[in-house]
Design a protein around this nucleic acid. Structure first.
Lengths: 228, 228
DNA sequence: GTGAAATCTTTACAGTGTCAAAATTGTGGC
DNA sequence: GCCACAATTTTGACACTGTAAAGATTTCAC
């Protein structure tokens, strides 16, 4: 059966070697694990969340449809690891946005960076918050998501000019965290789902989502208040 | 073929008669359209969004697997009509919450009613914002969702002590709408997805989501400002 | 080398949505 | 009253999905 396997070969040479001091051809595939994750991201960006199936990823990687199961157990295992990658990437985007700005404006910059990420990678962002598909007990995902949340808490603390400990929050601190997170997450979700189209359409000519976000955030500053 | 049809009979007698004074078994079904929508809601509440399939709804209603297609075209047709029902129900919940409160507190009451609805019917709320499944060109859904949005705009206008026209928004008005909507929607989504568990766990004993929402909302009031 | 383990493929099964054809039932015309 | 027609519902089929088991293949350890 001369069933040509060009895809397979292409996928194999695409991934760079990691170790194997002898530089001999790697074992079965090279590292299907990473190749599958890359293929999954390609599928996700091309076909959206609905097109992200085990078999589609296997096709994209040029392997049999059951290959992913061996590396990830099941579909939730694969998408959870992909979401973990998304969280790590999201983390660096937020970190770079936090630096390089005056402290007074860093909160605003972070808010914009948050929504920019969601807008630039809508399918990935949806996946990162798709409780239905993700397996939150997955260690890689758990760790990446927790780190992302911790950096949010840290940023809130910075804006409040105090050290906020995740282990014991006051209601006021928690309200700040929930407020900022709900704001940017809600805005991002509504934006991705097209629910803000009606608003944006009826705004003065040339107003885009970024300007709306800016106007929305400028009246919500955390901390610096004494009592209720 | 004595293939026992108990489900069908059960489903038929389960729904109260409307007419048919003779009490004979109704004609084809009665009205499968409504029966399917009721079955869909049962399935949605019992098995969540993932369990809401055409065939599961057909089974619940006691009809063949292809029956729903005739009434709703396809899956998105069915879930869109179900979501429309959700929006209408959501609308009355918000309306009753808006009334019966002092004007100064009606905004807060509405915010709580919003999140309460999402918390009481998480699967329905998720469906109502599942862009992936819904067909926003569905007339019933479009109308119900638009009405829901219009009432939000109207409530914002009331809080701003001005008449807000959806047809031409100022950036300031739009920012108020987006802020409030993003806040409650984001909070509801994070809450449903379990993302606020970490926060709630580390709050003083006995603090629940409602208190957190209250603290979060009390520092965000729309309108009443002059310039930026 | 050779056996063992890891990797990948093949095969199979139970689901799913959707379509076409067949069967059933209610309705309107005469 | 009766009969053709239209609406409704079922049956059957197809392509797709995830997942499991069994077989084939390759690498690794010794």
């Amino acid at each position: 059966m001369p069933r040509a396997p060009p895809l397979r070969a292409a996928a194999r040479t695409a991934s760079p070697r990691k170790k194997t001091k002898t530089e001999a051809a790697p074992y079965h595939h090279g590292d299907l694990h990473d190749a599958l994750l890359k293929a999954a991201e390609t599928v996700l960006e091309r076909d959206g969340l609905a097109g992200l199936t085990l078999r589609a990823v296997a096709r994209e990687a040029g392997v049999s449809h059951a290959a992913p199961a061996h590396h990830f157990g099941d579909l939730s295992g694969l998408v959870s690891e992909l979401a973990a990658i998304g969280y790590r990437r999201f983390g660096v985007a937020m970190a770079t946005a936090g630096a390089g700005h005056a402290p007074s404006e860093s909160g605003l910059a972070r808010g914009h960076a948050y929504v920019d990420f969601a807008q630039a990678h809508p399918a990935m962002y949806q996946l990162m918050f798709s409780a239905e598909r993700l397996d939150m007990s997955n260690p890689a995902l758990r760790e990446a998501a927790d780190a992302s949340f911790a950096s949010l808490v840290q940023a809130i603390g910075q804006a409040r000019h105090e050290v906020v400990s995740e282990a014991a929050l006051t209601l006021d601190q928690a309200a700040d965290i929930a407020r900022i997170w709900s704001l940017v997450h809600g805005f991002a979700m509504l934006l991705i789902d097209g629910r803000l189209q009606g608003i944006l359409r009826h705004l003065p000519e040339g107003t885009d989502a970024g300007m709306l976000l800016d106007a929305m955030l400028r009246h919500v500053r955390p901390g610096t208040r004494a009592t209720t």
